[in-house]
Design a binder for these strands. Structure first.
Length: 841
RNA sequence: GCCGGGAUGGCGGAACGGUAGACGCAGUAGACUCAAAAUCUACCGGGGAGACCCGUGCGGGUUCGAAUCCCGCUCCCGGCACCA
């Protein structure tokens, strides 16, 4: 391959660093020799599947893409030099709202834009931009989710899910625009109104497809064996929201004995005796039946008003509690108390049973509600050291542990869950179960995944409605159900599939009779919930996943992407992996072993980059001006990767200067002379310290300090260069180390310097340098001497000096001597190699 | 309101409980230049002539020693489904 490598522009001498000339030349050479094409069958090295989240083809790579991809590329390159066979693919998450919106906008303005051609053009353009990053993506295996050979397998997987009962249809609320007669995404609802029509958006129930992610709630709480950031695990755990408690049945009064059963869930069954009222969610199915005639108008008004509010509005403000009385009463099953039934929007129909028992004395929200509407407050838990018995004296709810009071047979029982803390909760549950009044229950906050979208630009859900057979999945051999491209977009945004006769009319896969196709498409999170399996063999046409390659290459070893995906995408991917395992398609439990998230890159003003603010940084311009290596290195240098931060157009100049100095260091001649043992040791120490530090930093994804260490080495080498060292073997050793350390960060510059140094083979085929521990050894060390924790002197001692010697030296320092005269020496602390602290008093 | 994260020089940021400010940007002075740019050298938290004193959002605490650990706040960023 070396004979195809281009000849460096100049052999020696001081020609300038010209990234614009070097970079395209090496990119072409790497491409020509297939340097980054991975042999998935190569078992001679350990495999490493390094995946970064694929982008939506928005039209242009912005600097945020560079921030996500180039440090990931550096990490992948590091692993490759460490000896792994690294698979680092890239593709496009190509379905989605923006392309469809462009088509709808064009339809309104009399133009003609199709999401398919628009998306394909954008993918082609962004791919060409990607190639200028100098990343080692393996473009021989790429994919776009909008292509039939990909979404066919979305459909195939959907049918498998349906067959297993993991995909099902039920009614769910959508945002309904009554003017445009269409469903809106949350982001299309602004201040409760349709973005386009301005109409007040209604919440409307519609039958829609869901995935049963809740079946996996318990397993999804288990992160063992995963090297994920704590904050992501915490966020997912809180999102799943496991609550342990009891389900208790209350009965509405009336209609002879019994009346309507109203199930409630509570985590505090020990407070049951303090339940003085009940609250139903406005959407609760029993609301209409329970409401008494005199309250009907008021209740109806409240329900309508709650229905008009978007979920975001319902919880965004810190509003005063609102609610309305139904006129009905229920009986508290534990003490027979008559409790009024209210309706309030702070109770959600989607959580628990959509109804609660309200214990105002021991729940903050119930307390606020009771005070607002003058409802009874009965304390049933006495805080330790208190003689509380009267609810009217309470200023706030008491939610802690204590001793049960006003609780019939349980008076005097300590509440709490810990061992020895009392077991009020467990004893009450046992008591309820004995009397068949309630039962132990675990509830999750997690809801099933609503996968239906009333949109065009997505994977058609491969289901049919037959008058004779009902809901029927399309036959496997008829997949894919093609998304028709000859469609007319509606100015209202309504899905054109609803009016596409050839698409709509089909024959029933079961009876052959006439059937109508489902016009809903899939949530695009479906596309990204299994795509890493597909990269292994994107063209495979006899199955979704190549099982043999999957067994060898998955799970993904390292996954990187934005923190904004901490919950949904990552949770759906974990669910899908488990579901695919249970369908017998793969053998692993988790998709991503190691996860690292980058923060967000902000505009120069510290705000999110947006066209409106005019603070968008264009990477193409930067590359033209400074070169890809400089952009890469600056993005890595800007700060900790997981924190993100503002772009600084002056900051990149510093990195450009650094790369220039590196260039000069390695290309300019210097006078050879007598090196001297001490200088050689100094050079070798600097070089090997840098190897140690940069290696450690790469392991920890600390790119900013890795570059700082390289800058330090550059400074040291530039100083030593003219001291006659250039002809010494340690100089070429240091040079070789430095170029290899730089290779993951600035791959083009490193390659050019590597070849100029006389190497024929690519630096990217070299192995990562090893630290020579003997180069790090020092004969003397400087130690700090503190008196009472404040630095009062410094001493130089032999590296192997024992404690006594160190203390002697410390106490001999003239300034320290002065300080010691101010008191009696009480204590001597020696931190080997670091400092001495002399405590006087 | 809840969940997660954060706060260190003029700026981006460094710092296994052990010399706060590595590395860089900006700035100041000098060298080179007719001059400028580029490059190179030195300085660069505040106060003080100095010994020193002050200093990591605020208030406490633990420790020989705290940016770092604990308790209580303030403000900022991100997410959210008032989660019973």
């Amino acid at each position: 391959m070396s004979d195809r490598a281009p000849e460096p522009a100049t052999r020696a001498g001081a020609d300038a660093y010209r990234p614009q000339e070097i970079e395209p030349r090496w990119q072409a050479a790497w491409d020509a020799e297939g340097l980054y094409r991975v042999d998935l069958e190569d078992a001679s090295r350990p495999k490493h599947y390094f995946l970064t989240m694929f982008p939506y083809p928005s039209g242009n790579l912005h600097v945020g893409h560079w921030y996500a991809e180039t440090p990931a590329d550096a990490a992948a390159r590091y692993l490759r030099m460490k000896g792994a066979n690294v698979f680092f693919p890239m593709g496009f998450d190509a379905f989605g709202l923006p392309a469809e919106n462009a088509a709808i906008k064009a339809a309104r303005e009399g133009g003609d834009v199709h999401p398919a051609s628009l998306t394909r053009e954008r993918i082609a353009f962004m791919t060409s931009q990607f190639k200028r990053m100098g990343a080692m993506f393996d473009w021989s295996r790429t994919l776009a989710t909008c292509e039939p050979d990909y979404y066919r397998w979305n459909q195939w997987l959907f049918v498998r899910m349906f067959e297993r009962g993991l995909a099902y249809r039920k009614e769910s609320y959508v945002n309904w625009d009554p003017v445009d007669q269409t469903v809106l995404a949350n982001e299309q609802v602004v201040d409760g109104r349709g973005e386009r029509s301005g109409a007040l958006v209604e919440r409307r129930l519609m039958p829609q497809w869901h995935f049963k992610i809740t079946d996996y709630a318990e397993e999804l709480l288990d992160f063992s064996g995963l090297d994920w950031p704590e904050r992501v695990k915490t966020m997912q755990t809180n999102w799943i929201g496991r609550s342990q408690g009891a389900e208790v049945t209350f009965r509405a009064e009336g209609d002879g004995d019994g009346g309507e059963a109203i199930e409630v869930f509570t985590t505090r069954p020990d407070t049951l005796w303090g339940a003085t009222f009940m609250v139903l969610a406005p959407e609760h199915p029993l609301v209409e039946r329970l409401t008494t005639p005199d309250q009907r108008d008021e209740v109806q008004r409240y329900v309508e008003q709650a229905g008009r509010m978007s979920e975001i509005d319902r919880q965004s403000e810190t509003r005063e509690k609102s609610g309305v009385f139904t006129g009905a009463y229920a009986v508290n099953p534990v003490n027979g108390a008559r409790v009024p039934i209210w309706i309030a929007d702070y109770v959600l129909v989607t959580y628990g049973s959509g109804a609660i028992m309200a214990v105002p004395a021991h729940d903050e929200r119930d307390f606020a509600f009771a005070r607002r509407f003058g409802l009874e407050v009965v304390p049933v838990v006495q805080p330790p050291g208190s003689d509380l018995t009267d609810g009217s004296e309470m200023d706030e709810a008491y939610t802690g542990d204590g001793v049960m009071i006003n609780s019939g047979p349980f008076d005097g029982t300590p509440t709490g869950k810990g061992e020895g803390a009392g077991d009020g909760i467990a004893r009450v549950i046992a008591w309820l179960e004995e009397r068949n009044l309630g039962r132990r229950k675990v509830t999750y906050r997690l809801r099933d995944w609503l996968i239906s979208r009333q949109r065009y630009w997505g994977t058609p859900i491969p289901m049919l409605f037959c008058d004779a057979c009902g809901v029927v999945p399309e036959r496997e051999e008829n997949l894919p159900v093609l998304l028709p491209e000859d469609v007319a977009f509606m100015p209202t945004g309504e899905s054109p599939l609803k009016h596409h006769e050839r698409f709509l009319n089909a024959s029933c896969p079961s009876c052959g009779g006439p059937a109508r196709r489902e016009t809903d498409t899939m949530d695009t999170f479906m596309d990204s919930s299994w795509y890493w399996f597909r990269y292994l063999d994107p063209g495979k046409d006899d199955g979704a996943v190549d099982r043999r390659l999957a067994a060898r290459w998955t799970p993904v070893d390292t996954y990187t992407g934005g923190i904004e995906h901490a919950i949904l995408h990552l949770l759906y991917s974990r669910f899908f992996t488990k579901a695919m395992r249970d369908m017998g398609l793969i053998d692993e439990d988790e998709p991503f072993v190691r996860l690292r998230n980058q923060g967000m890159i902000l505009g120069e003003d510290g705000e999110k980059m947006s066209k409106r603010r005019g603070n968008v940084v264009d990477p193409d311009e930067l590359v033209a001006r400074y070169g890809a290596d400089a952009v890469r290195a600056y993005l890595m240098f800007i700060g900790p990767w997981d924190q993100g931060g503002p772009w600084n157009s002056q900051g990149i100049e510093g990195v450009v200067r650094f790369l220039n100095r590196v260039w000069t260091l390695h290309t300019e001649d210097a006078e050879p002379g007598d090196a001297g043992e001490q200088r050689v040791a100094e050079l070798r120490r600097a070089a090997h310290t840098c190897v140690a530090e940069v290696s450690e930093d790469f392991e920890a994804f600390r790119f900013n300090t890795a570059i700082a260490e390289l800058m330090t080495l550059q400074n040291a080498m530039s100083k030593l260069k003219n001291a006659g060292l250039v002809a010494h073997p340690s100089w070429s050793e240091a040079t070789s180390l430095m170029i290899r350390l730089l290779a993951p960060i600035a791959p083009h510059l490193a390659e050019e310097l590597w070849h100029r140094a006389g190497n024929a083979r690519s630096v990217h085929l070299e192995s990562w340098p090893e630290v020579d521990a003997s180069a790090l050894v020092e004969t003397t060390i400087d130690m700090v001497v503190q008196v009472n924790g404040k630095v009062r002197g410094r001493v130089t001692v032999p590296a192997d000096a024992d404690e006594t010697t160190v203390l002697e030296a410390a106490k001999a320092d003239p300034n320290v001597v002065r300080w010691l005269e101010n008191g009696t020496l009480r204590r001597e602390i020696v931190v080997p190699g670091k400092l001495v602290n002399l405590v006087i008093g």
